[in-house]
Amino acid sequence: MNKTDLQITFAGNPVTIVGNKINVGDKAPDFTVINEKLEPVKLSDYDGKVKVLVIYPSIDTGVCAAQNRRFNVEANNLKDVVVLSISVDLPFAQSRFCGAEGLENIITLSDHKDLDFGEKYGFVIDEFRLLTRGTVIIDKDNTVKYVEYVPEITNDPDYDGALNAAKELI
């Protein structure tokens, strides 16, 4: 895997991010992840929709949980937009969390099996085999319109920046 030039830290310590870094203006690469039924899901399954990709290390941490709660609430204000929540958590953990929290407006997807998303979008933390935190907004024509790789993994993403980018595409 390619090492990116991203300067990302986890609790202040540098980590190595690998994969192909994605940029605004890129054609969004298709990828395959798995859903709660262990079925393959592709980005192309959502062609013709604005896509908000919410990326995080683990659903069972405070910041990741808050990130999913926030985007679940905001999904109500984003008509004709699909919010895809992606981590390497097992689909069972993602489903358990969303069920316990009553999160019904996001679609949780696991990159655990192949890291296909993480490699194609440059979100893999090499040291931990987890995804780093960030957000990617993709328009209806599958062009990347917004990318954030959060510099410190324990921090929240720029919710306003991501949500404003998504709203501009509606």
Rank of each mutant, 00 (worst) to 15 (best):
T4R: 03
T4F: 15
D5V: 13
D5T: 13
L6W: 08
I8R: 08
I8T: 10
F10K: 14
P14V: 14
I17Q: 07
I17K: 10
V18R: 01
G19P: 14
N20H: 07
N20F: 04
N23E: 10
V24K: 14
K27P: 03
K27T: 15
A28G: 08
A28L: 09
P29E: 04
D30K: 04
D30V: 02
V33F: 01
V33Q: 03
N35Y: 06
E36S: 10
K37H: 15
L38F: 13
L38E: 12
K42M: 07
L43F: 13
L43W: 03
S44C: 03
G48Y: 01
G48Q: 01
K49V: 01
V54K: 05
P57W: 14
P57A: 12
S58K: 10
G62K: 00
N68K: 11
N68Y: 02
R69C: 15
F71P: 04
E74A: 12
A75C: 01
A75V: 00
N76Y: 00
N77V: 01
N77P: 05
K79P: 13
K79Y: 02
V81F: 04
V82W: 03
V83H: 00
L84P: 06
L84K: 05
S87K: 11
V88C: 09
V88Q: 06
D89I: 07
L90I: 06
P91T: 06
A93N: 11
A93K: 09
Q94N: 11
Q94I: 11
R96D: 14
C98D: 15
E101I: 08
L103M: 10
T108R: 04
L109V: 06
D111N: 08
H112W: 09
H112I: 13
K113G: 06
D114I: 02
G118F: 06
G118P: 04
E119F: 13
K120Y: 02
Y121S: 10
F123H: 04
D126T: 09
D126P: 09
R129F: 15
L131K: 06
R133W: 03
R133I: 02
R133Q: 00
G134S: 12
I137M: 00
K140Q: 04
D141F: 00
V144E: 05
Y149H: 10
P151N: 12
I153G: 10
D160H: 15
L163N: 04
A165S: 10
K167G: 00
E168Q: 13
L169G: 00
L169I: 00
L169R: 00
I170H: 01
